Simulated scan of single mutants.
Amino acid sequence: MTTQPTQLDAAHFDSKARQWDDNPLFRERGLKIADAIRQAVPLNRGMTALDYGCGTGLLSFPLKDELGAILMADSSGGMLEVVDEKIAAQGVTNMTTLQLDLMADPAPTQRFDLIMTAMTLHHVPDTDRILSIFHDLLNPGGYLCIADLDQEDGSFHGPEVDVHHGFDRAELSRRAAQAGFAAVQFQTVFSIAKEHDSGTQDYPVFLMTARREDA
Protein backbone atom coordinates (compact mmCIF):
# COMPACT_ATOMS: atom_id res chain seq x y z
CA MET A 1 0.00 0.00 0.00
CA THR A 2 1.13 3.57 -0.47
CA THR A 3 2.53 5.24 2.59
CA GLN A 4 0.75 8.58 2.60
CA PRO A 5 -2.27 8.75 0.29
CA THR A 6 -4.44 11.81 0.13
CA GLN A 7 -8.07 11.61 1.06
CA LEU A 8 -10.65 11.87 -1.66
CA ASP A 9 -12.17 15.31 -1.82
CA ALA A 10 -15.47 15.35 0.05
CA ALA A 11 -16.95 16.92 -3.08
CA HIS A 12 -16.41 13.60 -4.85
CA PHE A 13 -18.75 11.90 -2.40
CA ASP A 14 -21.12 14.88 -2.27
CA SER A 15 -21.68 14.40 -6.00
CA LYS A 16 -22.50 10.71 -5.56
CA ALA A 17 -24.62 10.90 -2.40
CA ARG A 18 -28.05 11.08 -4.03
CA GLN A 19 -27.44 7.96 -6.13
CA TRP A 20 -25.45 6.00 -3.53
CA ASP A 21 -28.33 3.88 -2.22
CA ASP A 22 -29.38 2.99 -5.77
CA ASN A 23 -26.38 0.67 -6.06
CA PRO A 24 -27.42 -2.85 -4.99
CA LEU A 25 -23.78 -3.80 -4.35
CA PHE A 26 -23.44 -1.02 -1.77
CA ARG A 27 -26.66 -2.06 -0.08
CA GLU A 28 -25.71 -5.75 0.02
CA ARG A 29 -22.22 -4.92 1.29
CA GLY A 30 -23.68 -2.86 4.13
CA LEU A 31 -26.02 -5.66 5.14
CA LYS A 32 -23.25 -8.28 5.06
CA ILE A 33 -20.91 -6.15 7.18
CA ALA A 34 -23.73 -5.33 9.61
CA ASP A 35 -24.52 -9.02 9.98
CA ALA A 36 -20.85 -9.82 10.62
CA ILE A 37 -20.71 -7.13 13.32
CA ARG A 38 -23.91 -8.52 14.82
CA GLN A 39 -22.28 -11.96 15.06
CA ALA A 40 -18.93 -10.70 16.39
CA VAL A 41 -20.09 -8.12 18.96
CA PRO A 42 -22.72 -8.59 21.70
CA LEU A 43 -24.81 -5.58 20.70
CA ASN A 44 -27.32 -4.07 23.09
CA ARG A 45 -29.48 -0.97 23.36
CA GLY A 46 -27.20 0.46 26.03
CA MET A 47 -24.24 0.75 23.65
CA THR A 48 -23.20 4.10 22.21
CA ALA A 49 -21.75 3.86 18.71
CA LEU A 50 -19.78 5.93 16.22
CA ASP A 51 -20.11 5.15 12.52
CA TYR A 52 -17.09 6.91 11.03
CA GLY A 53 -17.23 7.51 7.29
CA CYS A 54 -20.88 6.59 7.50
CA GLY A 55 -21.82 7.59 3.97
CA THR A 56 -25.59 7.27 3.64
CA GLY A 57 -25.82 4.96 6.64
CA LEU A 58 -25.97 1.61 4.86
CA LEU A 59 -24.05 0.03 7.75
CA SER A 60 -25.76 1.66 10.73
CA PHE A 61 -29.40 1.64 9.66
CA PRO A 62 -29.57 -2.18 9.76
CA LEU A 63 -28.18 -2.06 13.32
CA LYS A 64 -30.11 0.91 14.69
CA ASP A 65 -32.65 -1.15 16.65
CA GLU A 66 -29.86 -3.11 18.39
CA LEU A 67 -27.84 -0.11 19.60
CA GLY A 68 -28.30 2.98 21.72
CA ALA A 69 -27.22 6.41 20.52
CA ILE A 70 -25.37 6.32 17.17
CA LEU A 71 -23.26 9.24 15.96
CA MET A 72 -23.13 9.24 12.17
CA ALA A 73 -19.93 11.01 11.11
CA ASP A 74 -18.61 11.74 7.64
CA SER A 75 -16.55 14.42 5.92
CA SER A 76 -19.16 14.64 3.13
CA GLY A 77 -22.02 17.03 3.84
CA GLY A 78 -23.90 15.58 0.90
CA MET A 79 -23.85 12.09 2.40
CA LEU A 80 -25.00 13.46 5.77
CA GLU A 81 -27.91 15.28 4.13
CA VAL A 82 -29.14 11.91 2.84
CA VAL A 83 -28.70 10.40 6.32
CA ASP A 84 -30.68 13.24 7.90
CA GLU A 85 -33.49 12.70 5.39
CA LYS A 86 -33.56 8.96 6.10
CA ILE A 87 -33.58 9.60 9.86
CA ALA A 88 -36.57 11.92 9.45
CA ALA A 89 -38.40 9.64 7.01
CA GLN A 90 -38.03 6.59 9.26
CA GLY A 91 -38.67 8.41 12.52
CA VAL A 92 -35.33 7.27 13.95
CA THR A 93 -34.69 8.70 17.41
CA ASN A 94 -31.23 7.35 18.28
CA MET A 95 -29.16 8.71 15.37
CA THR A 96 -27.46 12.09 15.03
CA THR A 97 -25.08 13.35 12.32
CA LEU A 98 -21.79 15.22 12.48
CA GLN A 99 -19.58 16.45 9.65
CA LEU A 100 -16.18 15.23 10.78
CA ASP A 101 -12.72 14.49 9.43
CA LEU A 102 -10.67 13.05 12.30
CA MET A 103 -7.45 13.84 10.44
CA ALA A 104 -8.27 17.56 10.47
CA ASP A 105 -11.00 18.26 13.04
CA PRO A 106 -11.02 17.94 16.83
CA ALA A 107 -12.26 14.56 17.99
CA PRO A 108 -15.65 14.40 19.71
CA THR A 109 -15.54 14.74 23.50
CA GLN A 110 -17.90 11.82 24.00
CA ARG A 111 -16.75 8.22 24.25
CA PHE A 112 -18.24 5.17 22.59
CA ASP A 113 -18.78 1.48 23.24
CA LEU A 114 -18.54 0.65 19.53
CA ILE A 115 -16.76 2.30 16.62
CA MET A 116 -17.51 0.92 13.19
CA THR A 117 -16.27 1.96 9.80
CA ALA A 118 -16.84 0.45 6.37
CA MET A 119 -14.64 1.00 3.30
CA THR A 120 -13.24 4.16 4.88
CA LEU A 121 -9.84 3.19 6.29
CA HIS A 122 -8.15 2.99 2.88
CA HIS A 123 -9.05 6.65 2.31
CA VAL A 124 -7.41 7.78 5.59
CA PRO A 125 -3.80 8.89 5.02
CA ASP A 126 -2.35 7.95 8.42
CA THR A 127 -3.47 4.48 9.52
CA ASP A 128 -1.56 4.53 12.81
CA ARG A 129 -2.98 7.89 13.79
CA ILE A 130 -6.60 6.99 13.08
CA LEU A 131 -6.26 3.73 15.02
CA SER A 132 -4.87 5.68 17.98
CA ILE A 133 -7.75 8.16 17.77
CA PHE A 134 -10.26 5.31 17.63
CA HIS A 135 -8.63 3.79 20.72
CA ASP A 136 -8.92 7.09 22.60
CA LEU A 137 -12.58 7.46 21.59
CA LEU A 138 -13.58 4.05 22.97
CA ASN A 139 -14.67 3.28 26.49
CA PRO A 140 -12.67 0.50 28.21
CA GLY A 141 -14.03 -2.78 26.87
CA GLY A 142 -15.29 -1.04 23.75
CA TYR A 143 -15.20 -2.64 20.31
CA LEU A 144 -13.63 -1.47 17.06
CA CYS A 145 -15.05 -2.92 13.85
CA ILE A 146 -13.26 -2.05 10.61
CA ALA A 147 -14.43 -3.38 7.26
CA ASP A 148 -12.13 -2.76 4.33
CA LEU A 149 -10.31 -4.29 1.39
CA ASP A 150 -7.66 -6.93 1.58
CA GLN A 151 -4.37 -5.80 0.08
CA GLU A 152 -4.75 -5.45 -3.68
CA ASP A 153 -2.71 -4.32 -6.69
CA GLY A 154 -4.14 -0.80 -6.94
CA SER A 155 -6.67 -1.70 -9.62
CA PHE A 156 -9.71 -1.36 -7.33
CA HIS A 157 -9.75 2.45 -7.58
CA GLY A 158 -7.20 2.79 -10.36
CA PRO A 159 -4.02 4.87 -10.53
CA GLU A 160 -5.85 8.21 -10.55
CA VAL A 161 -7.01 7.78 -6.93
CA ASP A 162 -4.27 7.98 -4.29
CA VAL A 163 -5.41 5.67 -1.48
CA HIS A 164 -4.10 2.66 0.41
CA HIS A 165 -4.33 -0.41 -1.83
CA GLY A 166 -6.18 -2.39 0.79
CA PHE A 167 -4.49 -3.86 3.86
CA ASP A 168 -2.42 -6.87 4.74
CA ARG A 169 -4.26 -8.46 7.66
CA ALA A 170 -1.15 -9.34 9.67
CA GLU A 171 0.24 -5.84 9.26
CA LEU A 172 -3.04 -4.18 10.20
CA SER A 173 -3.32 -6.48 13.21
CA ARG A 174 0.16 -5.38 14.30
CA ARG A 175 -0.75 -1.73 13.90
CA ALA A 176 -3.96 -2.22 15.90
CA ALA A 177 -2.02 -3.91 18.71
CA GLN A 178 0.50 -1.07 18.64
CA ALA A 179 -2.39 1.38 19.10
CA GLY A 180 -3.45 -0.52 22.23
CA PHE A 181 -6.07 -2.91 20.88
CA ALA A 182 -6.40 -6.54 21.94
CA ALA A 183 -8.33 -9.59 20.73
CA VAL A 184 -7.83 -8.63 17.08
CA GLN A 185 -9.67 -10.97 14.73
CA PHE A 186 -10.43 -11.03 11.00
CA GLN A 187 -13.08 -12.62 8.84
CA THR A 188 -13.97 -12.29 5.17
CA VAL A 189 -17.48 -10.88 4.85
CA PHE A 190 -17.90 -9.87 1.23
CA SER A 191 -16.23 -9.90 -2.16
CA ILE A 192 -16.51 -7.20 -4.80
CA ALA A 193 -16.20 -8.28 -8.43
CA LYS A 194 -14.95 -5.67 -10.89
CA GLU A 195 -14.59 -5.94 -14.62
CA HIS A 196 -11.24 -4.98 -16.11
CA ASP A 197 -9.83 -5.27 -19.61
CA SER A 198 -8.02 -8.40 -18.44
CA GLY A 199 -11.21 -9.94 -17.06
CA THR A 200 -13.12 -10.05 -13.77
CA GLN A 201 -11.18 -9.51 -10.57
CA ASP A 202 -12.49 -10.21 -7.07
CA TYR A 203 -11.62 -7.94 -4.16
CA PRO A 204 -12.31 -9.53 -0.75
CA VAL A 205 -13.60 -7.32 2.06
CA PHE A 206 -12.65 -8.24 5.63
CA LEU A 207 -14.09 -7.31 8.99
CA MET A 208 -11.49 -6.69 11.68
CA THR A 209 -12.79 -6.67 15.25
CA ALA A 210 -10.72 -5.56 18.24
CA ARG A 211 -11.24 -4.34 21.79
CA ARG A 212 -9.91 -1.61 24.02
CA GLU A 213 -9.30 -3.50 27.23
CA ASP A 214 -7.36 -1.00 29.36
CA ALA A 215 -8.94 1.19 32.01
Rank of each mutant, 00 (worst) to 15 (best):
Q4C: 05
P5S: 09
P5E: 09
P5R: 04
Q7P: 04
L8E: 08
D9I: 04
D9Y: 10
A10L: 10
F13T: 15
A17Y: 01
Q19I: 05
Q19P: 00
W20T: 05
W20I: 03
D21L: 14
N23Q: 01
L25V: 15
L25K: 13
F26Q: 14
E28K: 06
E28F: 08
E28L: 14
G30W: 00
I33W: 06
D35P: 01
D35C: 08
A40F: 07
A40W: 08
L43A: 05
R45P: 06
G46C: 12
G46S: 15
M47R: 08
A49P: 11
D51M: 12
C54R: 12
G57D: 01
G57Y: 09
S60I: 04
S60C: 13
P62Y: 05
P62V: 15
L63F: 04
K64S: 13
D65G: 08
G68L: 13
I70S: 05
L71V: 05
L71H: 04
D74E: 05
S76G: 10
G77Y: 07
V83H: 06
V83W: 11
V83P: 11
E85V: 03
K86W: 05
K86F: 06
I87F: 06
A89M: 05
V92I: 15
T93Q: 13
N94H: 15
M95H: 12
M95E: 08
T96S: 15
L98T: 09
L98F: 11
Q99K: 15
Q99M: 06
L100V: 03
D101R: 14
A104N: 07
D105I: 13
A107E: 01
T109L: 02
Q110K: 00
Q110W: 09
R111D: 05
F112C: 01
A118G: 02
T120N: 01
T120E: 02
L121P: 10
H122T: 10
P125N: 07
T127E: 04
T127Y: 01
D128Y: 00
D128R: 09
I130S: 10
F134H: 06
H135L: 09
D136W: 02
L138G: 11
P140A: 08
Y143Q: 00
A147Y: 03
L149D: 00
D150R: 08
Q151P: 00
E152W: 07
G158Q: 01
P159K: 12
P159W: 03
D162F: 01
H164F: 01
H165W: 02
G166D: 07
A170E: 14
L172V: 11
R174D: 12
A176Q: 00
A179Y: 06
G180P: 07
F181R: 11
F181Q: 07
F181H: 10
A182L: 10
A183C: 04
Q185R: 12
F186S: 02
F186V: 03
F190E: 07
I192A: 03
I192C: 07
A193Y: 00
A193G: 03
T200K: 13
Y203G: 00
Y203T: 02
P204R: 08
P204V: 13
R212Y: 06
E213F: 04
D214V: 11
A215M: 09
